[in-house]
Design a protein around this nucleic acid. Structure first.
Lengths: 199, 199
DNA sequence: CATGGGTGTGACCGGTCGGTAACAAGCAGA
DNA sequence: TCTGCTTGTTACCGACCGGTCACACCCATG
C-alpha cells in the first residue's frame, strides 16, 4: 500500500504543508515578521526542501497570495450556486458573507495586507494584488448592474471601500470600531441605489 | 552668534531630524523594512545619538505615530477655523480634504499601516493607534450629529470605512481603483442621512 | 581655563536573515 | 537489484538586525 494513502491523517506533500504553514504564519506574524526557517519548521520539513520548491521567499509569498485568490474565487462560485439567476440575492449574500468573515477572520485580507507591507516597487506580489482587487471589484459591479441597481460603478466602489475599510478598522480598533456596522452601512448604500428611490 | 540660529538652513536638533527621517522612511520602506542605522544616517547623525533620545526602535516608532496623530488633530482645528459653527460645511470640507490627501499622499494612513504591519500583540503602538482611530471616528460622529444628520453613528462609521478603504485601495490598485470615487461615495452616503429624505 | 552635557566615531555584541553546498537516507518504478 | 527522484540533515555563507561600549570631540557656560 502506498504510504501517502494509508490513513486519514496521511502526510500531505511537503510542498502543500509549506504553503499552508506560510499562509498561516504570514497572517499571524506578517510577511516580514517570519523567517523561512520558521515556516519550514512549522511545515514539519526543512529550509532546503522549501527552496527546492520555491526559488525564493518572494516566490513563496506569491504562491500564498495565489492560494488566497483562489479561495476568494470559490466564494463567488458558491454565491452563484446558492442564488442562481438572482443577482440581488447574491449581493445580499455577499454582504452577509463578508460580515461573517469580518467577525471570524480578524486578520483582514491577505492580499491587502501584503500590499501595505510590501513597499518595494517591482515586487512580484503587486501585480497579483492589483489583478485580484480589480477582479473582485469587477464581479461586484457586474452583480450590481445585473440587479438593476443604479450607478453600478459607484455602488461597487462604495461596497469595495466599505469592505476594505471595515477590515483595516477591525485590525486597528477591534470589534468595537466602525467594522461593527459594516453590514448596515452596506445595506444603506445599496438602498440608495434602488431604482424605486430617487435615481 | 549661536550656531543654531546663524542661517536659514540652520541645523535642526538631531532629535527632530531623526523623527522626521523616521517618518519618511517608515512610510516608504515600512517599519520593518528600514533599520535604525539607515534612519540615523538619513538624519545626518548616528545610531548612538538615536539611542540616546529613544530607548528602542519601538519607542521611535511610537514617537512618529504621535507626530502623525498631532498632524491629524491640526487638520480638525483647521476645519473648525475655516467653517466656524457650520458643522455641515466642516463635513464637506473634511470629505474634500481627505480626497485631496488621497491623491497627494498615496502611502495611506501611517497609523493604519502600522496597525497592519505590527502584528505582535502588546506592541506599544497598538494603544496609540486604537486611541487615534477612535478619536477620529468620535469627531466625525459629533460633526454628523451637530449637522442634524440622521443616525450619526452609522454615518460616521460609514465615512470612516470609506476613507480607510479608499486608502488601502489606493495602495493595492492605484489611482484607477475604487479610491477614485471616494468623494462621490461620501456625498452619496451623506445624502442618504439628510432629514429631508426618508428618515 | 575648567567643567559638563550633547554629540560623533567606530568597533563590537549575539542573533537572525535569506540562501546555498554537500551528502545521506528513503522510496518509487523498472 | 539497480536507478533516479524527492526528501532530510548539517553546516555554512555574507549581510544585516537592534542595541551597547568606550572614547574623543565640540562648545556654551562658569
Amino acid at each position: 500500500m502506498k504510504k501517502t494513502a494509508c490513513n486519514a491523517e496521511a502526510k500531505t506533500s511537503p510542498r502543500d504543508r509549506i504553503v499552508s504553514s506560510a499562509c498561516a504564519l504570514f497572517r499571524t506574524h506578517g510577511i516580514r515578521g517570519i523567517g523561512v526557517d520558521a515556516i519550514a519548521q512549522a511545515a514539519e520539513t526543512n529550509k532546503m526542501t522549501l527552496y527546492r520548491h520555491f526559488g525564493s521567499k518572494d516566490d513563496l509569498v506569491c504562491e500564498t497570495l495565489k492560494v488566497a485568490s483562489a479561495q476568494a474565487a470559490a466564494l463567488w462560485d458558491d454565491l452563484e450556486n446558492r442564488f442562481p439567476d438572482n443577482p440581488r440575492a447574491q449581493i445580499d449574500g455577499w454582504v452577509a458573507g463578508r460580515a461573517d468573515c469580518l467577525a471570524s477572520e480578524p486578520h483582514g485580507c491577505d492580499l491587502a495586507n501584503a500590499a501595505v507591507e510590501l513597499k518595494e516597487d517591482g515586487h512580484p506580489a503587486h501585480v497579483l494584488i492589483d489583478r485580484f482587487k480589480t477582479e473582485q471589484r469587477r464581479r461586484l459591479e457586474d452583480l450590481c448592474r445585473a440587479a438593476g441597481l443604479s450607478d453600478p460603478e459607484l455602488l461597487a466602489d462604495t461596497l469595495s471601500m466599505l469592505l476594505e475599510g471595515a477590515r483595516v478598522s477591525r485590525i486597528a480598533t477591534g470589534d468595537h470600531g466602525p467594522a461593527a456596522r459594516f453590514e448596515r452601512a452596506c445595506h444603506a448604500a445599496i438602498a440608495g441605489h434602488e431604482r424605486s428611490k430617487a435615481g
